[in-house]
Every structure is written in structure tokens, then in C-alpha cells.
Amino acid sequence: MNVPIKTNTALSENRRLSDQMYITLLVASVAIGLFLIASVFVPNFFQLQNMLNLVTNNWAVISLGVGVTFLLVSGNFDLSVGGIVALSGVLSVWFAQSIGSSNALSSGLGLPYWVALLGALAGAIAIGGLNALFVVKFRIPSIIVTLGTMMVARGIAQVITQGSQRNTNLPDEFGVLGSLKVFGTSMQLPVVFMGLLLLAAIFIERKMVFGRITYWVGANPVAARLSGIDNAKHITYLYLFSAAIAGVVGILLSSEYQSGYSNRGLLMEFDALVIALLGGIAIAGGFGSVIGMFFGAIILAVVTSAATGLTLSPDWQYILKALAVFLAIVAQTWALARRNK
């Protein structure tokens, strides 16, 4: 049988907005709406610089959110990303520090800078491999596994830094990546990294077979397997990618601060999960999008920075996060139920 390339116009014209787009639009309009409301009440909120800051200040969490989103769509948690950020940052510093200082924390492996970076990335990916091993091979719930690997990753970072940080004896070029201004603008390399990552992720999600497989695996793992998809392989890739992204984030952060700090990225896994949930990603799997996650991050950023602008104590951010996630989940459930009645 040959499938002729023809479109049944009646059916195509009737294409209505998918639930996916509906929720993404909903999240986006909430983000914009909240921004406008905040602009009315918070002094100096409605400024170009502030709008940019909402995004650029959160480059790390948004980047992590990409990997976390893909995994959630496939029906799996990744809580290890915060730990990996610390690990890869610490590793990059330790590998690059020159040898032979009397102080243990000042003495590293003295590897060439680029080798240090590759080594740090490899360390991060190894944690991703551990995630995949336990989730795919041993079939242990991903939330338990990634809690464990989060502790292992951060634990290794703590051992290397003796519970503190390493910031001496670094080569001159170490700080370049994290603070490099690109194209003679004030745009820093990490932000560019986030931008490119987002574009790549949206492309993979929307346009590539890999992205589509992620949805199939998350929507119905049994049907996916019976349709010839290698779920195990796919989930393994997703964990490796997520860990690699976290690895790069860790390297960039350690370069920006010129230090490897074992508590860096603390609770970042939590924030990445929060923005994904705000962005309408269903933890049951098979539903959600990177764009949604991005707008989820904007919602969180607007809410927390508006709170700061209103001179609320920073402690409010915890309550605001809780309220935002609660309202997002309830509203999305309600909106979908109403729409599909």
C-alpha cells in the first residue's frame, strides 16, 4: 500500500488546539498577566532590564529544567541535578588546580584546563549513568534512585572539598567561561548556553523523532514497548543528557565564581521540578513541553522578584512557591477537565 501525500481538508481544517498547546498558552498568559499585575504594583518593575533579568538570573535552573522536563514527560523524576551541579563544579576546579601546594584544598590534579572540563563533564554523566542503571535495570522508583544519587553526587563534592570549597591555585583561564560577554553585549556566555539549549530542546521535542519517542514512552510504556520502542535505551539517554546539562551548568557556575563549592546548586533540583510543574508538565508522563517549563520559570521569577520588590522578606519565596505550584496544579486539572467535558 502506498500512502499518497494528500490531505483530507475537512479533517485538517478541523484541527483544534491540542490540550498541550492549550495548557502552554494558559501558562504563558498567566506568566504575562502576572508580569503586568506586578508592573502595576511594584515600583520599577516594568523595565526592559528587569524583564531580561527575570530570564538571565535564572539561566541555571531553566537549563536544568530542560533535562528534568524531558524526564518528566517520559514518566521519570530527576532529583539528582542539584547534586550534579555541585559535583561537576568541584571536579572541574579540583582537576584544574595546580599540584603541590601544602594546603590540601589548594592542591589539585594540575590537568590542562580543557581536560579538567571534560573530566568534570564525564563525572556528571557518570551520575546520570548510575540513575539509568538503577531506574532501568533494577526498576527502582526514579524518585528514590535520584534522591540517592543526589546525595552521592553532592557527597563526592563534599569529600573533594572537605565540606567547604576550593578556589585557589586555578589557571587564569578558569574564570573566563562563566563571565565571558558575548558579541560585545552584556549577555554572558551562560545565558547564551541556556538560550541555545532551549532552542535545541524545543527543536528536539517538536521536530525530532527522539522527542516524539519521549512522549510515547511517557504516555504508555507498555504500548511503546509493543510498538517496538526500546524504552530502556531511551530513558538511559534522557538521564545521561540531563546529567550532562547539569554538568555544564556546574562547570559554568564554578567558572563564574572561580570556585568549586560543595553546596552549590542546593535545592536546584527542587526549583527545576517546581518550574516544570508550573509549566504544566504532568508527572504521570506523556504531557508537557519545554516552552511550558520556560514560562513556568517566568511565573516563578515574576512572583519571587515582585515579592522582593514589595520588600517582603526573602523567606516569603517558600510560601509563594508552594502556593504557585498548588494553584497551578489545581487550575490545570480544572481547565483540562472543563475543556474535555
Binding site: 523523532v209 504516555a219 504500548a223 510498538s227
Partner: peptide
């Protein structure tokens, strides 16, 4: 439970078993 991706559309259900045909160097 075994055949359909019930929360996906008809369009999204049909190509799953022939990814080679759906893939143009990885592009869907």
C-alpha cells in the same frame, strides 16, 4: 492499556511502529 496512547491524538498514535519511515536523519 497495550495498544493505544490514549492521551495522545489519532495523528500522534499512528506513526509509532515505523520510525524509520518517520525519520529524516532524525528529524520527525
Amino acid at each position: 492499556t497495550q495498544g493505544l496512547f490514549t492521551n495522545l491524538t489519532i495523528r500522534e498514535n499512528i506513526p509509532v511502529m515505523n520510525l524509520r519511515r518517520m525519520s529524516n536523519n532524525g528529524i520527525f
